[in-house]
């Protein structure tokens, strides 16, 4: 895929880290404000997609990226499942999806037990998944136009 002009490239290079940072902000404040894992993950993936679109890329490197992202996605889901499953192993309760950490005070960044951790895992998962979808479609399109 070909890149775009120097103006677009430069602006994207400046904007992408900010967008990425905003995605992280949305994820870690997921238990306090609207947003959370899914919304933040999509924003983070948006930063990646912008970079790929503006700078262009070689197909083979995209393929490599895709397999790495697939690994991250599966690992994140496994992490989520493990966090949910720990509740089953805790003696006495054995409840799936139980919030086994200290809840803290409402409104603080570090509070709400496992929910922020789950948000981070979901954010990583969604970011990887949306990027994978984008890259897969790019690869497919390239295969067709050949």
């Amino acid at each position: 895929m070909k890149g775009m002009t120097i103006i677009v490239k430069k602006i994207t290079q400046i904007m992408a880290p900010i967008i990425f940072l905003f995605g992280i902000y949305i994820i870690v404040h997921g238990h306090l404000t609207p947003g959370g894992g899914f919304a933040g993950g999509v924003i983070m993936a948006g930063a990646f997609i912008l970079l790929i679109l503006s700078d262009g890329s070689i197909l083979s490197s995209l393929r490599k990226e895709e397999s790495g992202l697939e690994f991250l996605e599966s690992a994140a889901i496994m992490g989520f499942l493990i966090i949910a499953g720990i509740g089953l192993l805790i003696s006495g309760t054995s409840v799936f999806f139980i919030n086994f950490l200290e809840k803290g005070t409402v409104g603080k960044l570090i509070s709400a037990g496992v929910i922020p951790i789950e948000n981070i895992v979901v954010g990583a998962e969604v970011c990887a998944a949306v990027s994978t979808i984008f890259i897969a479609l790019v690869v497919f399109k390239d295969e067709v136009s050949k």
Partner: peptide, 24 residues
């Protein structure tokens, strides 16, 4: 609807990829 949107994303992506393959 947040869940429904995620599901819709998956369905649409799969449909589009099948459509591209069909075009091929």
């Amino acid at each position: 609807i947040l869940t429904a949107i995620v599901i819709g994303l998956a369905t649409t992506a799969l449909l589009l990829s099948i459509a591209i393959r069909l075009y091929r």
